[in-house]
Write a protein that binds this DNA or RNA. Structure first.
Lengths: 167, 167
DNA sequence: TTATAATCATTAGGTTTCAAACGATTAAAA
DNA sequence: TTTTAATCGTTTGAAACCTAATGATTATAA
């Protein structure tokens, strides 16, 4: 499986330029394409190899993880952290509540706000699950040196900050 | 918005280690977390700022793009390229066919195989759309130098190859 | 040739996901 | 105080997405 510049022969690149009649930024194209593809693979790998045994989606897992670290968290914060809308968090919270992995709690001082809280069962699940998840993470990056991993993380963070508008 | 090591104070990291009673790979965790988050932001940005005007999902766009470059492509190949299952491609092909942006064609030599082909209307859409999409890609990476973009692309490709199992 | 197995795409059923509409609550203004 | 506006989370409806089941076609074996 090749990717972009390897996959796109110079002929196709010429066609692209001619068709759009406009100087394309091929480096930007390569970064974005490979970033998206890497993330798709990563998600698929984790869901198939690890999360499927627990019947959890990637987002559901990341919510449980956040609740594990922070004990409880408001739905808005969870949405930002998981990169989905609040509506999605609400939907997944329904699923997690049905499984008794978390519960909701309304803020008494501002009754518009809702927190999610990890249940004991939820805690047991994430504590059993997380080491396996981290092992999967390790496998993914094991082809890179420690230095390369740090460079990659740093570059990705700069992209994230850029897209979140707080540079 | 901070990410991982900035967000996770050393206290929390200690808690993590104690809870799982197992040495975690924090570098791997940082790479994976930031990779996934960057991709989520990227997808959201593109869908909101560019693709929504055309009523196209990110995956639908990537199918049109592939068909534009390669004229026609089998559903299985499209699935690999887009990082989704063949079932999803089939479903999106239904949507795209309804909009008359592509059509199906059965391979006469092996009638199990199905190709998607771009229609004239589909071609017009992708040719109008792609320059805008590339402009969005450019915005995302403009905080990185050309050298940094190339390093990022190279590291991401190595992760992809690793996950696809052909190292 | 005929039966069996393998390989495709599609369909079925269910969860995730989003935007938009809604209802409840709080804040601001008159 | 009463009205208006802003801010929450949830629901709704539709598309995307997955796994598993199905149907159609081709390849292999008996």
């Amino acid at each position: 499986m090749l990717t972009l510049e390897e996959e796109l022969l110079s002929v196709e690149i010429d066609i692209l330029h001619r068709l759009v009649n406009y100087p394309l930024d091929l480096n930007a194209m390569a970064v974005v394409t490979n970033l998206y593809r890497a993330s798709q693979r990563l998600k698929a790998k984790m869901e198939q190899e690890i999360l499927s045994k627990y019947n959890l989606s990637f987002t559901a897992f990341s919510i449980l993880y956040d609740l594990w670290i922070w004990d409880s968290k408001e739905t808005r914060e969870l949405a930002v952290s998981a990169g989905v809308t609040v509506a999605t968090i609400s939907s997944i919270a329904n699923t997690l509540e049905k499984k008794e992995l978390c519960k909701r709690e309304v803020d008494p001082r501002d009754r518009r706000l809702v927190k999610l809280i990890l249940t004991e069962k939820g805690r047991a699940v994430i504590e059993e699950l997380y080491p396996k998840f981290n092992k999967g993470e390790k496998e993914i990056v094991e082809g890179l040196s420690e230095e390369e991993q740090k460079v990659l993380t740093r570059l990705l963070r700069r992209l994230i900050r850029k897209m979140e508008g707080n540079e």
